[in-house]
Amino acid sequence: MSGHTLIDLPELTRLLRECAGEEEGVDLDGDVLDTAFMELGYDSLALLQVIGCIQRDHGIELDEDAVAEAETPRALLDVINSAARDAEKLAA
């Protein structure tokens, strides 16, 4: 069982906007999957806020070190969705 995707890119960018606002001159709706968060205008505190919301609203726990190492949306989505799949497996 591969499990479903808990959060996709549009959902992540929506949360980023909602939790931390949007940097002027950055198009979050563009091809940002491999753009570094720093380039998108998000620092570690902005990510902390977003990660906090995701953990709270989906009842999952994310590994702090893995989150800190995720420098792009693709890397962060991998951390989130693999943690969600692990949780699903555990529950199954």
Binding site: R17, A20, G21, E22, E23, E24
Partner: peptide, 8 residues
């Protein structure tokens, strides 16, 4: 105020 500064 820029959008990035509003939540903070």
């Amino acid at each position: 105020i820029p959008s990035r500064l509003l939540p903070q």
